[in-house]
Design a protein around this nucleic acid. Structure first.
Lengths: 208, 208
DNA sequence: AAGCAACCTGAGTTCAGTTCAGTTTGACTG
DNA sequence: CAGTCAAACTGAACTGAACTCAGGTTGCTT
């Protein structure tokens, strides 16, 4: 599986870019982006604050990079999980299940993505930030299209009743990602149970 | 209908508290909280920046107040819309429909609420901010309980299949509020159509 | 061992949010 | 209708976290 990893093997051996991203995911994911001091990330990596600017133009640039990587991962995983399925309802189930087949680090990344989604709406002043923002926006649209296309395939095969596939796709996606706002690994309900519950909901929503 | 209004009639006639909240809802709703300068709100109201601190302890205190008022309104409207319904599926439909029976100002408030929900997770340093935060948190739980109770009533009456009402409630609520992340009044799809689509989805999710 | 690019730093700057130390306004009282 | 008081307001100063600058260090390459 060619996942977009936080640690990029293209980096020089001395580079702390991956370590910064990992630390930032942990801090932004646990305490929130605004609640986390940029210097805390530096402390955790073991470098001075200003060294961060060797890798990222700004705190926001780091955040946008995390968001873009997570979106890339989500998209890749969707494609991977649905590419072999031909039966529409099974394809739908596989897509939901893969959305919840995530590590704890990926859960944090999802949480960061969801909590800061509105950042993608307005242009950024600096060039590198804007590049990441636009890339992330396009990936959002790509993920939305992944779902819309899956739904349209099922509808044209007669497996699901015909409805507005775009709006339905947004509703399905909205329900799935809303889980990352409240789910915590320490919570009472295991993720597997949530996944099954949502899978059932999505199938009823789409296929009945 | 005893809605929680932004303009509190308890205020003195010279008070600009309501005007500040209205201006803040507009700016925070259009450009986002972080993107809006606190002084811009003062400009819009026609007072100096420091005068804001006569009404709110901080920018965050104003935001938390907006969020609390919106949650209060959502809860009140839910109760109002469902109190006369006895037939479970009709009650469910009424609850969804009322969630989308909102003015443009209320749409902005929903957007602000959704975009800054994570603010409610961590304690605030100052007293008045913390009071608003705790009140808002309790209202979140109250809205979640509104949905959970509605679902449990329907299940015990045999109108819906028995499922984990809490998780199902969060899924339904998550899908509904996710609309405010992307919906814009200027968009291609009218809100009435979205409302009908979601209503159908919720009924299939819950009652089938 | 020289060169050089990647990597790093302490000191200083910026700017939005906030505090301070009062001043103005206007309703009400005697 | 002068005096009082709380609500409403203000300009100037302060704060802290993000960021810039002007270099210094490290270690790989030739």
């Amino acid at each position: 599986m060619a996942r977009a990893r936080i640690v990029d093997p293209e980096e020089g051996p001395r580079s702390k870019r991956g370590a910064i991203l990992v630390a930032a995911v942990e801090r932004f994911g646990e305490d929130g982006y605004e609640n986390t001091k940029w210097s805390e990330v530096a402390d955790r990596v073991g470098i001075g604050q200003t060294a961060l600017y060797h890798y990222f133009e700004s705190k926001a640039h780091c955040l946008l990079t995390i968001m873009r990587l997570e979106l890339q991962r989500s998209h890749d995983q969707f494609v991977e999980a649905t590419k072999d399925e031909t039966e529409p309802v099974e394809e739908l189930r596989a897509a939901v299940r893969t959305a919840f087949a995530v590590t704890e680090q990926e859960i944090r990344q999802m949480r960061i993505l969801q909590a800061n989604m509105s950042l993608l709406a307005t242009p950024r002043k600096s060039k590198r930030e804007e590049t990441e923002r636009v890339a992330a926006r396009q990936l959002v649209q790509m993920v939305e299209r992944d779902w819309t296309n899956l739904l349209m395939r099922g509808m044209s095969k007669g497996a699901y009743p015909v409805r507005d596939a775009h709006t339905l796709g947004l509703a399905v996606l909205g329900m799935i990602v809303s889980v990352w706002r409240w789910y915590r690994p320490s919570g009472a309900i295991p993720l597997s149970e949530i996944s099954e519950m949502i899978e059932g909901c999505v199938v009823r929503m789409v296929a009945e």
